[in-house]
């Protein structure tokens, strides 16, 4: 073998390895999110005197790492467990017509390109007239995309946020963030960064709207506030967390925050209703007055996909 052809062979081998690594990177057991499927459900009832019936059913699967809540494809919703790309749905007994069916455990293999799955399970049917057995086969086709969900979801969103932050001009930044917000209007990172951008541009009213959108997700708001509490404790060099019971000043501040009757924040008229969600409102007041609040939130929250 010549030296040149040897080099070519190594390059091709490396490329093949890279492709293999990319495809191997996705496993459903590490995925959090939702996938949509068209499931062809084929029920073989020949053992019960019937025929073979096929039906297409739309099914949603909610993934939470190894746990998967699978929508109804014939016997009601069910929770399964992923091990790699194999979903195991436990056996169970369900009421069925005038009798009941015992469903056996199902092992469903999801394809590594994330576009399909297939599997089958046996079942026994029993009522007062007969006992019989049959098989149900499932074949799923992805309805919500043509690539692995992690590549279209958290990973690309993280990359988009990173890319937007690296942009030097505001127009490009806004375009990047808007792309994210078009798909996910309550996205914390895109809204937060847009709020900071508008604040820098002196557009306080719009900045407040983006903060409002960023904090619409109660879970994210709660986790952000919890992290910021620790950050502020360090910044203020306090050994213990002040509370309304230990600090008259904090008690007064909270009282004032909660009595907001409408008025101006910056030059924007903010109605009384804006303070209806107390946690959100108190966070907004912190955002407005605490120094370097934008960067502190960024440090505390990291990027999509961070722990």
């Amino acid at each position: 073998m010549s030296k040149t052809s040897c080099h070519c062979f190594v390059v091709v081998l490396l490329l093949l390895l890279q492709v293999a690594v990319v495809h191997a990177a996705f496993v459903y057991e590490n995925h959090v999110g939702t996938t949509q499927w068209k499931v062809e459900v084929k029920v073989d009832e020949t053992g019960c005197g019937g025929g073979v019936e096929t039906e297409d059913v739309p099914v949603t699967i909610k993934h939470d790492n190894t746990l998967a809540d699978v929508g109804d494809f014939g016997h009601g919703p069910v929770r399964g467990t992923f091990n790699g790309n194999v979903l195991t749905i436990p056996g169970r007994t369900i009421p069925d017509g005038s009798g009941e069916s015992q469903l056996y455990e199902a092992k469903i293999q999801f394809t590594s390109d994330c576009l399909g799955f297939s599997g089958s399970y046996r079942w026994n049917y029993e009522d007062s007239y007969q006992e019989c057995s049959g098989t149900t086969s499932l074949r799923g086709t992805r309805n919500d995309g043509k690539e692995c969900p992690a590549q279209a979801g958290v990973l690309s969103q993280r990359e988009q946020i990173e890319a937007a932050r690296k942009e030097l001009d505001d127009v490009s930044k806004e375009r990047e963030y808007q792309e994210i917000l078009d798909k996910d209007p309550q996205n914390f990172w895109a809204n937060w960064d847009m709020a900071e951008l508008r604040k820098k541009q002196g557009k306080a009213g719009e900045s407040l709207k983006y903060v409002d959108a960023a904090t619409s997700n109660k879970n994210i708001l709660a986790s952000t506030r919890a992290k910021l509490k620790q950050e502020e404790l360090k910044r203020l060099n306090l050994a213990t967390v002040p509370t309304p019971f230990t600090s008259p000043l904090l008690r007064e501040s909270i009282g004032e925050a909660d009595r907001w009757a409408g008025g101006f924040q910056y030059d924007v008229s903010v109605p009384k209703d804006a303070a209806a969600d107390k946690n959100k409102w108190r966070f907004l007041i912190w955002t407005i007055n605490a120094p370097d609040s934008g960067n502190l939130v960024n440090r505390a929250m990291g990027l999509p996909g961070d722990e």
């Binding site: 306080a204 509490k229 904090l250 501040s253 007055n289 605490a290 120094p291």
Partner: peptide
Amino acid sequence: YGMEYCKGQLKDVLGQLMAFA
């Protein structure tokens, strides 16, 4: 309230303490 355009350590501290509200 009203401190948006003000400056100083008191503003900073009062703002920061809202993290504990």
